[in-house]
């Protein structure tokens, strides 16, 4: 279990701060933004990003008419939209919380911890369509580890982390795990006679504590 830490708390804070500024810049302010996190850790990231964006928008000169309203954020569960439900042990869904204003005509920023195959995001796009019709959908991820299986790319990336498929990337966040860190570990060496690397990555016992690296 040689887990190597690749991002510390300060790195994560810096990455989120930069992403918050990039979202504000691309969106020309915070108007019409809705942040939706993908459970489990995407939800906490969305909440933290929303707080940062709200704070930066309030301190900038563009908000001449007082404080802008807080950027709405929520959670988008994609379990029911996955394409691998028949291939894995049953997953328990998490609650979906769409902010009161809805997402029609808004710019939705999807937030997840790790971008891997892109299949989770594909599911999320289907899920969004059932909740309304946003003006645009963007994607922000803390870690992009490559190995895409679908034509999906992130708009905002905290850290590009080229990895082997046998490696596992763990994202730990203060609200969920008590600590901010991103670690990487090689499962090919200590996996107990793992028959194939795909299984090692999506071991059901670990899915709660690791990235949504589902393939």
């Amino acid at each position: 279990m040689a887990a190597r830490t690749v991002l510390q708390q300060a790195d994560i804070t810096r990455a989120l701060t930069r992403i918050a500024h990039e979202i504000l810049e691309a969106n020309k302010g915070s108007a019409g933004l809705v942040l939706l996190g993908i459970p489990t850790r995407g939800v906490e990231l969305a909440e933290r990003l929303a707080a940062l964006i709200t704070a930066f928008a309030a301190s900038s000169d563009e908000s001449v008419d007082g404080r802008p309203s807080p950027v709405p954020f929520g959670a988008l569960d994609v379990t029911m939209y996955r394409d691998d439900l028949a291939r894995h042990p049953t997953r328990s869904p998490s609650p979906t919380r769409i902010p009161a204003g809805g997402i029609d005509g808004k710019t939705v920023v999807l937030v997840d911890d790790v971008l891997f195959s892109g299949r989770t995001i594909r599911s999320a796009l289907d899920a969004i369509a059932d909740h309304g019709r946003p003006a645009a959908v963007r994607l922000a991820v803390l870690v992009d580890r490559g190995h895409r299986e679908l034509p999906i790319r992130p708009d905002y990336v905290g850290k590009n982390l080229p990895s082997a498929t046998s490696e596992r990337i763990n994202v730990l966040l203060t609200g969920t795990d008590g600590i901010d860190a991103v670690t990487i570990e090689d499962t090919s060496r200590d996996a107990p006679a793992a028959p194939d690397p795909d299984e090692a990555i999506t071991d059901p016992a670990d899915t709660q504590s690791t990235e949504e690296a589902t393939r």
Partner: peptide, 23 residues
């Protein structure tokens, strides 16, 4: 309890405009 919790999630989807799930 897991069954009842999933039923809660299913009930939440029944409040939406599009009630159908592709599951």
């Amino acid at each position: 309890i897991q069954l009842l919790d999933i039923a809660e999630d299913m009930a939440a989807t029944q409040q939406r405009e599009v009630k159908k799930l592709p599951t």
